[in-house]
């Protein structure tokens, strides 16, 4: 099927209907394998069993950022190519992205409690993820404020693209800001090479999260298309009802 056919929401719907059960099944299998691997992975010699929070925390952090990237591409689709599915994709992605970011923050703070002695420190990483979370919530609030999806779509697209430019700047400035004030930096994963016994479960969990994201996103897009159809039908019906003429 040529890609242009997918632009047609009806074609998209039928494809989504067929793909969703398979995706859901694959996601479940991937999670079963991933969680099993994570369960059997060795404990860290310093951190003990708490290190296993990483298997949830890191994939959700990756996807939280990936989701904004996806929304940015969708925003370009809305503004530049005026693709009919672009703002549907953007709208469906925002709550999932926000949920993943929240998951990342919550697991992070649960992990931080035994590591740093506090649920939250104003570390550069954490802070920029918190800002990302705030931006997701802003986008969702904007979607909820405007009733007309076409108008809301354009406003959100602009906000998303500005956010995409702003996020790296926030990241750098926070890094810079933070090194000024907090000399005791927290050693995190990035530094040392990861042992394969941890790397493989992590990659498996990442795959499971990606599949979960695709499944949820597809289902949310389908719901959004149906919701818009219901809205259009109601508008048409209201106009056809007696007494609509001015």
């Amino acid at each position: 099927m040529p890609i242009i056919d997918l632009a047609n929401p009806t074609r998209f719907l039928s494809l989504a209907e067929r793909a969703l059960p398979w995706l859901a099944g694959t996601t479940a299998i991937a999670f079963a394998i991933g969680l099993n691997l994570a369960w059997t992975a060795p404990d860290d010699y310093q951190q003990g069993a708490t290190v296993k929070i990483m298997f949830i925390h890191v994939p959700s952090a990756w996807l939280a950022m990936g989701c904004w990237a996806l929304m940015s591409i969708a925003a370009l689709g809305t503004l530049v190519w005026r693709h009919p599915l672009a703002d549907v994709a953007a709208k469906a992605a925002a709550p999932i992205g926000a949920a993943l970011t929240l998951l990342c923050l919550v697991t992070g703070s649960l992990w931080g409690r035994p590591m740093w002695g506090a649920y939250w420190v104003w570390d550069a990483r954490l802070t920029s993820v918190l800002v990302l979370f705030l931006m997701y919530l802003g986008v969702i609030a904007l979607w909820r404020t405007v009733d007309d999806p076409a108008r809301a779509g354009r406003a959100v697209a602009i906000l998303t693209l500005v956010g995409a430019i702003n996020l790296p700047i926030i990241k750098w400035s926070v890094d810079w800001w933070n090194t000024l004030h907090q000399p005791a930096s927290v050693v995190r994963l990035g530094g040392a090479a990861i042992h394969p016994t941890i790397l493989w479960p992590l990659l498996m969990m990442a795959l499971a999260f990606v599949l979960l994201f695709v499944t949820l996103h597809l289902a949310a897009m389908r719901n959004e298309i149906l919701r818009r159809r219901v809205r259009t039908l109601m508008l048409m019906q209201a106009q056809a009802a007696p007494g609509s003429g001015a």
């Binding site: 104003w122 802070t127 918190l130 800002v131 705030l134 800001w177 933070n178 000024l180 004030h181």
Partner: peptide
């Protein structure tokens, strides 16, 4: 709540 630590620094 998020902006305040940016202004006064991350001293817990």
């Amino acid at each position: 709540v998020t902006l305040t630590p940016f202004a006064i620094g991350p001293d817990l």
